[in-house]
Amino acid sequence: MKRNRWILAGLLVLLAAALYENYDKEIKSWFGSGESSATEAESGKSVSALVAENAPKPGTPAPEFSLAGLDGKTYEVGGKRDKPLLLNFWASWCDPCKEEAPDLVKLADKYGSQLDVYAVNVTFYDKLDNAKEFVENYGYTFPVLLDEKEKLYRMYNGIAFPTNVLIDENGKVQDVIVGTLSKEELEAKIKKLLNV
């Protein structure tokens, strides 16, 4: 468990650094070389604030995409939808994703007639066989999409697993949840999205 936390922490540092052109200066500023990064100095904002600034915000259109699922079908997001969507980014090695998985299954079963759930395995950071085993072990019945090149995760400015994005029928982001919530907290956000 501690090993996974260190791996996740390392991935977060690398992802944040990769988002900026001035990679070397960012790393030095994080680890206390005394120099501040050009990006931070120019904007007066921290790295985490800059990352958050580029993330999809409530009320903005959800980034459009088309992605293949484990079932061989292609799933698309962009513009108006028949139902609101819970977009869940995960990896099979992620302990919080394992904790959240049973709740996602229950919520998808409960609200499936009113809500689409797409589980996006960021396969770039995972192994396909492990992802398939995870889906089978947790009984996912909703579409599981494969982000093999991390393109979608980057579009949504993902920084940690799990990340859940709630998108309304008009294709607008209503909430971005980084990390886990209790089943009750997540259900409250879903109810708000569905107006129930």
Rank of each mutant, 00 (worst) to 15 (best):
W6P: 00
W6E: 14
W6R: 14
I7D: 00
I7F: 11
I7W: 10
L8Y: 11
L8G: 13
L8R: 08
A9S: 10
G10R: 02
L11G: 10
L11A: 01
L12K: 15
L12W: 12
L14Q: 10
L14H: 13
L14W: 06
L15A: 14
A16W: 04
A17K: 04
A17E: 11
A17S: 13
L19P: 01
L19M: 15
E21W: 09
E21V: 11
N22V: 09
N22R: 15
N22T: 13
Y23E: 12
D24F: 11
D24P: 03
K25A: 15
K25V: 14
K25Y: 12
K25S: 15
E26A: 10
E26M: 13
E26T: 11
E26Q: 14
K28M: 14
K28Y: 11
K28V: 12
S29E: 13
S29H: 12
W30N: 09
W30Y: 13
W30K: 13
F31K: 02
F31N: 07
F31M: 05
F31P: 01
G32W: 06
S33W: 11
G34S: 07
G34T: 00
E35D: 12
E35L: 09
E35S: 12
S36R: 15
S36N: 14
S36G: 10
A38H: 13
T39F: 05
T39I: 10
E40P: 01
E40G: 02
E40R: 07
A41Q: 06
A41H: 06
E42Y: 07
E42G: 05
S43P: 01
S43M: 08
G44L: 07
G44K: 00
K45N: 07
K45R: 13
K45W: 09
S46A: 05
S46L: 08
S48G: 00
S48I: 13
A49R: 10
L50M: 15
L50C: 02
L50F: 03
L50I: 10
E53V: 02
E53F: 11
E53C: 05
E53Q: 12
A55C: 07
A55M: 15
A55E: 02
A55N: 04
P56R: 08
P56N: 02
P58W: 04
G59E: 01
G59K: 06
G59N: 02
T60V: 09
T60L: 09
P61C: 03
A62I: 01
P63H: 03
E64H: 03
F65C: 08
F65Y: 11
F65W: 13
L67C: 13
A68T: 09
A68L: 05
G69T: 03
L70V: 01
L70T: 02
L70M: 02
L70I: 00
D71A: 03
D71W: 01
D71Q: 01
G72I: 02
G72Q: 09
K73A: 09
K73C: 05
T74R: 11
T74W: 01
T74C: 05
T74K: 08
T74S: 10
Y75N: 00
Y75S: 07
E76P: 06
E76V: 07
V77L: 15
V77F: 04
G78F: 06
G78Q: 05
G79A: 00
K80Y: 06
R81D: 04
R81H: 10
K83A: 06
K83D: 02
